[in-house]
Design a protein around this nucleic acid. Structure first.
Lengths: 263, 263
DNA sequence: AGATATTTGTTCGTATGTATT
DNA sequence: TAATACATACGAACAAATATC
């Protein structure tokens, strides 16, 4: 259990230079602890020194040390446990937290449906091709289990919305299966945006039978291509799927944005 | 100055449920403040209530309130200023911080050159096509200014390395020019990985004339396509550029990983 | 330019909650 | 169950930064 980190932990802000001495100490302490982590080649599961020891080592007060640890915890680098043998433990940042942090960056950016689908269109076909030669029966079964949620017309508006989420989760599963961590994370992030974006939430509350039927058809074809391990087929099916979904969603976005909607 | 956020600020961890009462209060306070921000439709530049007021409002101690603010600061949501009229101000998270936070997630994931270039190959050609019909003379001039750093063979190892970085910065500029915030950010993030990844740093210290010459040629063609606003040409040039760079870098990665290297 | 008021930043002592043994 | 070790929380006092007069 040694393989050290492949990326250097970099400071969050490139050292503004104009903090004369004592300002923002917790942040600096946090950076020092990061350096210490890399120096010691610590891996997830390892424990940091205890609070008192950190206080002595870095010559700061308890409050400052705690704030520094809070920084690292927020960054997803450590988790703390109470009790004997407790303390701060190196941890791998779960994708969910990484997504949440990243979403903050786009909070005021006013993303559009088109922005998101442009990337899905660029990424998911390739991902589908990769998955075709890789997925086993069990994974394919998981995908099919997700599909049963929307393999029939919705009876209520609530079911309509649940089906939309389930359709997205089909693609979320695909992302989880990706062996390229970057590809998997980014595709998953795009899905999470589609789940959270205010525009999307509004769109999902409106009936849209075409989106469901087409999606279902494409996904069924996709499963078939996965079964036959046909990468080319999977790629072109996904390409068509994304192009179709993009078009339909953009129409909905335009309608919703023009306020042709109750509420 | 009203347009409210388009994405809901979501809690970082999906509420484990097993924290009975007093545990992890700062995090909960931070979440409450987030809710308050969304409720009030605050935009970057707006000020949060002062420390003392937060302490009263949320009925916590100063230390806890400060830790909560630290969380929000780490998430890039606020910045604080001292002095009269000071306090915590809503702020837009700079891309640099978002990149740093995201990089933490991949810290223990052992990304490979191939992982990164698979995505560049999928994203940058499309981006180039978009930019072709959008870039003005001034932006193109900026790109050309970056290129002069590596338009000649390097004389020293240090220059070699500087040239590699400059080549990457050419693409970083492209990402900055993108009008799709997602596309721009992700392409920029991939570049930043290539700058920081330990494998890459090692690769860049070795002479590699082919990489430079080919890159230079492709980028010159790209500039030409931008000038003529030829989206198709830009796209296919970038596709070829990425394919070529991917191949060359993978070869280098294999060599470096086998330890055929001094040091 | 300098004094002052305001607000965040830091420290310390103490008390409490919580998990392990 | 009790003891213990540790994180967590509180409040008061002090230090530093900065805007305003």
């Amino acid at each position: 259990m040694k393989p050290p980190a492949s990326i250097r932990l970099k400071p969050d802000q490139p050292e503004t230079g104009k903090s004369p001495g004592l300002r923002n100490r917790p942040r600096k302490v946090a950076e020092s602890i990061k350096d210490w982590i890399t120096d010691q080649n610590l891996v997830p599961g390892d424990r940091l020194p205890q609070e008192q020891e950190l206080i002595k080592t870095f010559a700061v007060s308890k409050g400052t040390a705690r704030e520094a640890l809070k920084v690292l915890e927020t960054q997803g680098l450590i988790q703390t446990r109470t009790g004997p043998g407790g303390g701060a433990f190196i941890t791998e940042m779960p994708a969910s937290r990484a997504r949440a942090l990243l979403a903050n960056h786009f909070f005021f950016k006013n993303l559009t449906i088109s922005d998101i689908y442009e990337l899905r269109q660029a990424l998911e076909p390739e991902m589908a091709a990769n998955l075709a030669i890789q997925l086993g029966d069990q994974e394919i079964a998981t995908l099919e289990k997700t599909m049963v949620v929307y393999d029939h017309p919705p009876k209520t508006i609530e079911e309509e919305q649940q089906q939309r989420i389930a359709e997205l989760e089909f693609h979320e599963r695909l992302a989880e299966f990706s062996t390229n961590p970057l590809q998997g994370f980014i595709c998953g992030f795009l899905i999470s945006l589609l789940k959270d974006l205010a525009v999307c939430r509004r769109i999902y509350t409106r009936p849209n039978p075409e989106l469901r039927e087409r999606g279902l058809s494409y996904q069924a074809q996709l499963i078939e291509a996965f079964r036959e391990k046909d990468a080319n087929a999977a790629q072109s099916i996904m390409r068509a799927h994304m192009a179709s979904a993009k078009r339909l969603m953009e129409v909905q976005e335009a309608i919703v944005n023009r306020g042709f909607l109750p509420g």
